[in-house]
Design a protein around this nucleic acid. Sequence first.
DNA 1: AAAAATCGTTGATAAATATCAATTAATTAT
DNA 2: ATAATTAATTGATATTTATCAACGATTTTT
Lengths: 231, 231
Amino acid sequence: MEEKKNPKHCGACLTKLPIFKSLSEEQFDLVNQIRCRVKFRPGEVIFKQGTAMTHIIVVNEGLVKIYLEGINNRNLLLRFARPVTIIGGPGFFTDFRNHVTTMAVEETSACFIDINTLSELIKVNKDFSADLLKWVNTHTINNYRKLIELTQKGMHGRIAGALLYLSEEVFNERNGDIPIKRQDLADLTAMSKESAIRILKEFKDEHIITVEGNTIIINNKQKLAQISTTG
Amino acid sequence: MEEKKNPKHCGACLTKLPIFKSLSEEQFDLVNQIRCRVKFRPGEVIFKQGTAMTHIIVVNEGLVKIYLEGINNRNLLLRFARPVTIIGGPGFFTDFRNHVTTMAVEETSACFIDINTLSELIKVNKDFSADLLKWVNTHTINNYRKLIELTQKGMHGRIAGALLYLSEEVFNERNGDIPIKRQDLADLTAMSKESAIRILKEFKDEHIITVEGNTIIINNKQKLAQISTTG
DNA sequence: AAAAATCGTTGATAAATATCAATTAATTAT
DNA sequence: ATAATTAATTGATATTTATCAACGATTTTT
């Protein structure tokens, strides 16, 4: 975990975040001043569930996963996040704790912005808090979808949906191949690792996907979409 | 569905809502002006998932349930709400649609407040939007809990947890007896109605609960709490 | 009050899913 | 490179949970 202070101006980064667009130049400079950029290696925890929420981050480079630490050392993977994304959490304005764990999956660099500064901005800038509200509500909609996905679909449908999500939203810059750990896929679909592997094998036998070591290649996206909704 | 306009001043009602405490007298009066009180009979839908979100409500009397309409006519019951509670939804500031269905369980009366008025208040009143953010984040924390509860606990633990929730947070003004439909209990715990009934029977045989027709009486809260966490 | 509809219950069975154990492949550290 | 560790895979089996069907009880409607 290597720490650098403001290696470059963060304008390029923040302008990509709709949520920061409503900041005035002055407010924006403030964020630029106080931010602190840190690098993480794969597997390193950025925020740990249960700890005090002192900062939010903006992911600049790499890939992180966000998950709930549940019962009996089982995790529930909520989502992955690519640059440029702001990672906050529901502890904001409530108990100021981290309710999820955030971990670097690839080599990742992120800017830390402290909660107090953020709170100031919200108090001063109405548009900003409206944007934040919108952002939080978007997540709630996703959580609702996830609740239905995980409680009302069988394993085939869940794996199919997960593969589509990974290919379209996480690894979309690759040629449709998905490098994912089996345990992560299992955590994403709330099943055992062995079950996830078995479904993958079925898909492989039906030529819907090709598996080459760690990476999964989607051959028949249509079919996956159909399995995701039907089965 | 019977409609009355401002049968009485809503001060008593709104002061009970922390979220409305930050309103100025003027803003508060505005809400009082535009609000519209409506009565619902058990089983009547107040908001239907998928429709445009034109209002929020404040539940004054009765009991409502809030659920997701999922796959194959299966519902996922998110929570019940008692007076005095504000019922909004994640459509606010996003797509302005209802993402959940809200239904009266007992005879219920609720005040409708239109979205535009609410939006105005948010733009004018910073504290109000901060409160709203806090409120939404609280719900997100609950959704996370629910995700773990439903995906990582067995049926016994889920039913135990649901009974505790119902007794402590929904029917807490009764002497510990819970009048609930079996289907609602099943929807709350994401299992089939038959399975829910079977778990209830097991609890009954172990004298943890007593079942008298529609109502469930908790005899051993400790044991339920233990089952909820352990099993 | 009778009929119709809904709700609760139970048993038998099938389907879905997890667990355990063993083995092989891949990755990381020495 | 070689050893040590971690990850992927597979089979056998047990557990969990749903489905289907039947029936009795309750509530609602006519």
